[in-house]
Design a protein around this nucleic acid. Structure first.
Length: 282
DNA sequence: ACTATTTCCTGGATGC
DNA sequence: TGCATCCAGGAAATAG
């Protein structure tokens, strides 16, 4: 499932492949479409726009769009953004028109280069939206929380120290940090030696410092390996990531802890399965 | 202002 | 083999 490292991988892959291309036309699937903006608004912002850049913000893919001046001369100017949230099973494909249309394809963008960008999402948890860059929204889309890789230890402590909720829930709260999901929350808590049910406010500054370091470490390692391919995640080129091979607790219920051989436990916190080592994590 | 719970959605796994 | 049921989970909505 796409969390920060997977979305980063997809965004980098898309940027490499489609930056500079122009969106000629847009097809959106039948209702109910997984949209956040009205369909006509999405079409209006995307069509005839040039893709300046594709990047990640939190768990969102942000496609920065430009328009040429009406007379076609002069410099392109920032115009809007296409925001993609992959949800659980969302994928963005770069395809050729002759390529078979996958079931659950909800959007197809025809590009000037002849290729197509396709949004496919069987489970429909993904969302598409557009932002117009204007006086009301000059800076465009912003995630509600801090970027985990940019927040320093002081900021990290400030975000969590007063929360009475379990630290696992706090890590998943996108309003605090944007981009951490179930896998990387569990993996960072294991590396920091902290039980997922511990109330955030009971953690010492040292605990939070260790967690901050562990989270950055695990996210960076995962990005380096192209993310985790569990469920059906693949990147923009259809390649799987390899970080699932590095998982120490996620999905390992009953298997021996890699440090002390105690069986890994699975509990449910806020409706999410949470994996930890009862011996190594306190 | 927080926190906890429910809901959305479908494919794959499981059980009888 | 076939059908029913359960489960996965990000985030919005709802309830407390």
């Amino acid at each position: 499932m796409p969390e920060l490292p997977e979305v980063e991988t997809v965004a980098r892959g898309l940027d490499k492949r489609v930056a500079g291309d122009v969106i000629d036309s847009v097809w959106l699937g039948e209702k109910p479409e997984p949209l956040k903006s009205p369909a006509n608004e999405i079409v209006a912002v995307l069509e005839r726009s040039r893709i300046a850049r594709v990047r990640r913000v939190g768990k969102h893919i942000v496609v920065d769009l430009e328009r040429m001046p009406r007379n076609g001369k002069g410099k392109a100017h920032p115009h809007g953004q296409w925001i993609i949230h992959l949800g659980m099973t969302g994928r963005v494909q770069v395809a050729q028109p002759k390529d078979e249309l996958l079931k659950h394809t909800h959007a197809v963008l025809k590009l000037k280069s002849g290729r197509e960008l396709r949004f496919v999402d069987p489970r429909r948890f993904g969302r598409l939206a557009v932002v117009r860059l204007d006086a009301k929204m000059p800076a465009g889309f912003a995630a509600p929380g801090d970027e985990p890789l940019l927040a320093d230890a002081g900021r990290f402590i400030e975000l969590f120290r007063k929360r009475k909720t379990p630290i696992k829930s706090a890590l998943l709260n996108q309003g605090l940090l944007s981009g951490v999901g179930n896998i990387y929350a569990d993996e960072s808590l294991f590396r920091a030696g902290i039980r997922p049910r511990r109330r955030a406010s009971t953690l010492t500054r040292d605990d939070l410092c260790r967690l901050h370091a562990a989270l950055k470490e695990v996210l960076n390692e995962a990005i380096a390996l192209g993310g985790s391919s569990v469920s059906d995640y693949v990147d923009a080129d259809g390649r799987e990531g390899f970080f699932q091979l590095q998982h120490r607790v996620y999905g390992r219920e009953g298997e021996p802890c890699l440090v002390c051989e105690t069986p890994i436990k699975r509990i449910v916190i806020a409706g999410r399965s949470s994996h930890y080592c009862p011996h190594c994590q306190r």
